[in-house]
Design a binder for these strands. Sequence first.
DNA 1: ATAGTTGCAAAAGTTTTGCATTGTA
DNA 2: TACAATGCAAAACTTTTGCAACTAT
Lengths: 134, 134
Amino acid sequence: MARDIAEKMLLKAGLRPTSQRVGLAAILFDGVDKHVTPDDVMRLAQSAGVDVSVATVYNTLGQLAAAGMLRRVTLDVGRTFFDTNVSPHHHLFLEDEDKLVDISGDAVRIIGLPDLGEGLRIKSVDVLVRVERG
Amino acid sequence: MARDIAEKMLLKAGLRPTSQRVGLAAILFDGVDKHVTPDDVMRLAQSAGVDVSVATVYNTLGQLAAAGMLRRVTLDVGRTFFDTNVSPHHHLFLEDEDKLVDISGDAVRIIGLPDLGEGLRIKSVDVLVRVERG
DNA sequence: ATAGTTGCAAAAGTTTTGCATTGTA
DNA sequence: TACAATGCAAAACTTTTGCAACTAT
């Protein structure tokens, strides 16, 4: 049952497993990696009969991302995706389908990044490959 | 005079060199590469005495980006930058200063990107390095 | 009781659209 | 005069905030 997993993930994230959050987490952590927008989540919640407001969807997604349970991927104006795959990896964006696809993080190597000055630390390196039919 | 250059760029982009657009282009293409948000541009326009609405700032930036005169760089929610450097290159984002810095495109090499299926074409490869003090 | 947490209505902020106006042929 | 392009007010959309209600001790 996905609800059990959902509850465990919420507790691990230090969030109370309220009915809204359990409902959302059950949708997100069903065992299949996904890339969803807040709007997708809202729609999925409605279909699943989870009664929740848009604000709570945003807040919950933000909290899960802050807890490292989701990865926020910002693409273009007004296109924020949340990725349930939180291991280091990159993304391919299929423009024609408006869809994000993971690229394994191990496979990709980036060489030639500049040395950082004193006291600076790399927080993340994201590669986004935009792909179109042609 | 930056106004002459501005007018040339607009004509090259197929846009009428109206007073608003010339004013904005003169701010953007003053010979120094910059990373600006629509809000920055609005403020700069006001300081420069260019009378223009927010909508026109957005529309003009979008038109210049579509014409390849500006590069749109989307970072996070509600953080769209326009880069006057349109040659292929990557970006470093300094979180503490909320500032984008260019990384030369020639210096960086990315290896291990997956083969694309039939009929797909890479449109762009963007690397974003997030940096923080630490 | 009370201190902390939650969910959401309302507010804030960003971007796009519809259309009156202006410019062009 | 007709036809296309422009600029912007207003609308649409995305995200955050403030606070009443709830929970746990």
